[in-house]
Design a protein around this nucleic acid. Structure first.
Lengths: 216, 216
DNA sequence: GCGTAACCTTACGCACGAGTAGGTATGCTC
DNA sequence: GAGCATACCTACTCGTGCGTAAGGTTACGC
């Protein structure tokens, strides 16, 4: 009964690896458009051209699926950045290339990335996953600053370094949001602007210029 | 039947205004702890020491309730900041006081504010509300920069100004997150750190020092 | 050609939680 | 102290959507 009336051009059976990617593509799309909560597994399955139990069989529950999305996209982003910076370049050059790669990536995945990212901040289970990624970024930036500082013969507390790095990463993320919301904006130009804010400030710190609260 | 066995010390009937505040307190608490989705109206009502229909009668649906929370907390924050900055102070002093007020506020409402704020970014209906608040902040910061720039006899495009302001606000938000996650951290010190990152960079820009991408 | 394993389906159970209907108590006004 | 408005309750309805049971179909090895 209902023997696959074969309306579409004969459904091909595909190997697992391929289907999984299709599902992830669909999931990213739907999660982006609807948000985690409003997205339904039915819609994702539908969009992937597959039925729901397959999604469960391959990628697990809704949460696991979301984390899988986050993971894939995050890894791609990290690779994009890592591929752009050579370890033997001077700090400002590395920062610039990293930023350019980052904004380039976001610009190329506006809907996909930014919204996924925003979702992830909201609820506990995902926050951990996200924190890992952000942590790696912060670490890289902090390492860069530290390296540059040592070259200048200065020392700065680990917490200070981390916090500054955190601020820079935060500013960058914020601009990524801005970029995602402004389709006409140019990633390269955004990166330049970020560089102006970040590096100008960082460079001051590197040269020992600091700000202190006024004696009130 | 079941005529209020009066276990607790005789429930008082309270005027609407008071109950509304209690409900909002409870809502902020529960939304913070669970996230918007996972929070249930039952739990909120329970926590407020009231029954669910009362919540609906006074504050409306779950979304409306959340927006009411956002609104109240946002207004309080804005007032805290506005009360700290005098319009006739120099730009750096205003920035410093604004930052100190902001981080002080976040520090005093760690769980409440930061998580509420994180939630709001996730789904569309709330994003609008949040965008308004952030927009006001960006406007204030941009205005401050613009003012300072004019004083130096410089002109900068409106978009550039907005983007820089956006980055600064983003960095600040990011540090607020960090602060919320580190109970031992000192708001005042965090504000100082932010000032170092932000103002050092901004000051450079004010003096016409800019960064340009290297000719590759 | 025939088993077996992987692919894929339809159709359902079931919990959870938003929102409501309809009724009870309490204080305030005259 | 009757009447009325407002505070407040218990106990439902009902949609939604996650996750699954049980069964069909295609490919591939032997």
């Amino acid at each position: 009964m209902l023997a696959r009336v074969s309306s579409s051009p004969t459904f091909k059976r595909l190997p697992r690896a391929v289907r999984e990617q299709q599902m992830l593509d669909a999931a990213v799309k739907v999660f982006s458009r609807r948000g985690f909560h409003a997205a339904s597994m039915d819609e994702i399955a539908d969009d992937a051209g597959i039925s729901k139990p397959m999604v469960y069989a391959y990628l697990g529950t809704k949460e696991e699926l979301f984390i899988a999305c986050l993971h894939r996209e995050g890894t791609r982003m990290m690779e994009a950045i890592a591929g752009a910076v050579a370890p033997d370049l001077p700090a400002d050059e590395r920062l610039w290339r990293g930023l350019r790669a980052f904004f380039g990536f976001v610009g190329a995945h506006r809907d996909g990335w930014a919204v996924l990212y925003r979702q992830a901040r909201a609820s506990q289970p995902f926050a951990a996953e996200l924190a890992t990624m952000r942590g790696r970024l912060v670490e890289v930036v902090a390492g860069m600053l530290d390296h540059a500082l040592r070259a200048e013969g200065r020392e700065v507390g680990a917490t200070d370094l981390e916090v500054v790095a955190y601020a820079l990463v935060g500013a960058t993320e914020s601009l990524a949001d801005w970029l995602a919301d402004h389709p006409e904006a140019d990633p390269e130009k955004t990166a330049t602007r970020m560089m102006n804010v970040a590096w100008m400030g960082a460079a001051q710190l590197l040269h020992g210029v600091t700000w202190h609260p006024p004696a009130t």
